[in-house]
Design a protein around this nucleic acid. Structure first.
Length: 360
DNA sequence: AAATCGTGGTT
DNA sequence: TAACCAAGATT
């Protein structure tokens, strides 16, 4: 009687047929693998497919990234979120340019010391770029294993994590870490999906403990979700003699080193106009007048759900030099120059919506 | 070690 | 539509 195919063989066969043809899967250049893994953190594939080639056109290799200006790096990352990823890419490129001949080390411990590279990404570079037997566990693998091994504990629990990482390491077929690790994630992304897993099409259906017990829909067990917080914010586009005031945010805050229009949270029973005047005074020392309502924008970051009230406004006095309290730098720029600076997504949307109407 | 960091798409 | 989700790292 013939032996049933192993889990590994079934998975690898499935991947060779159904694996997507992604830009970083052509030659598995370490720089491409590293960049794609950083971009993919907490980010949808479709968005990365848009940003990845644009980034490579600007920074074709690690050395060119090392020599770039930070603002250029942030401008290319604008809209992807989690901006520390971009600053860490840049910083790591500079470290490797100085000390490692502009190459990524094939060394797990050395990778872990680099900014922005944690356990997952170090394993991804080791296995995908160098085909070395290091495990990787991302949200796909967590979900897949929670079902495959029918884990009743929350996947984020310490015991579950230890089990999953252990299995991920133990299952790697000798010499096939690159294909195996990708096939695990790919199966999670394409078949073992969060809401509607396609169990009938799964190459591992005969190995799946949750499927055998009818518990697929109840795996993985999630932890408790944190509450979301609704807040109202205000921002104002201050224009003066055809120029617009922008300021560069502090390095240790939300949106570090990105540029913005001043503004902030609407407190208590303030009206948006009152909050705008107060924020401008606090952040820049400017007294503003004639705030004119433009539009409301909805956006959200981490646990906050924000309604952003957007205004146009003018200087009440004649002084154009601010006293910065919430920023490290400022500029008076023409509307055309706004494209050279990296803005948070809602501020960029505001710029786009205003279009030709800016600074009139 | 729980909280924080962004964003846009889906349900 | 509010909640959930996406190839995590850092402090």
């Amino acid at each position: 009687m013939a032996q049933a195919p192993s889990l590994q063989d079934s998975l690898l066969a499935w991947f060779s047929e159904h694996g997507r043809n992604l830009p970083w899967r052509r030659e598995y250049q370490p720089y491409h693998v590293w960049l794609s893994e950083i971009m993919l953190q907490q980010t949808q594939m479709e968005r990365v497919l848009a940003y990845f080639p644009r980034w490579l056109a600007a920074f074709p290799d690690l050395a060119s990234l090392a020599q770039a200006e930070e603002q250029e790096v942030l401008r290319l990352w604008e809209g992807l979120g989690y901006y520390s990823r971009a600053r860490n890419l840049h910083q790591t490129a500079r470290i490797l340019h100085r000390h490692h001949n502009s190459t990524l080390p094939a060394d797990h411990a050395a990778l872990l010391k680099l900014p922005g590279i944690g356990r997952y990404t170090a394993g991804a570079i080791m296995s995908l770029a160098f085909n070395l037997p290091c495990p990787i566990v991302d949200a796909n693998v967590e979900r897949l294993f929670a079902r495959l091994f029918n884990l009743a504990e929350p996947v984020k629990a310490k015991s579950s994590q230890a089990f999953i990482w252990g299995k991920a390491e133990e299952l790697i077929p000798p010499g096939k870490a690159r294909l195996f690790n990708q096939s695990l994630m790919e199966l999670g992304a394409l078949v073992c999906q969060p809401r509607a897993p396609k169990c009938a099409a799964c190459p591992l259906r005969l190995h799946c403990a949750a499927l055998a017990r009818g518990l697929v829909a109840q795996r993985p067990v999630a932890g408790k979700a944190r509450e979301t917080i609704a807040i109202r914010m205000v921002t104002g586009v201050l224009s003066h003699r055809g120029r617009i005031f922008i300021q560069k945010r502090l390095a240790n805050d939300v949106w570090p080193n990105l540029w913005e229009f001043p503004g902030g949270v609407i407190e208590g029973d303030e009206t948006p106009e009152e909050a705008l005047r107060r924020e401008y005074l606090e952040e820049t020392g400017f007294a503003i007048h004639r705030p004119e309502k433009l539009l409301d924008l909805k956006h959200s970051y981490t646990r906050y759900r924000v309604t952003l009230h957007c205004y146009a406004c003018r200087l009440a006095g004649s002084a154009t030099r601010p006293r910065l309290a919430a920023a490290q730098e400022y500029r008076w720029v023409t509307p055309g120059e706004l494209g050279h600076f990296a803005f948070p997504a809602p501020h960029r949307r505001l710029i786009d919506r205003l279009g030709a109407g800016l600074a009139q």
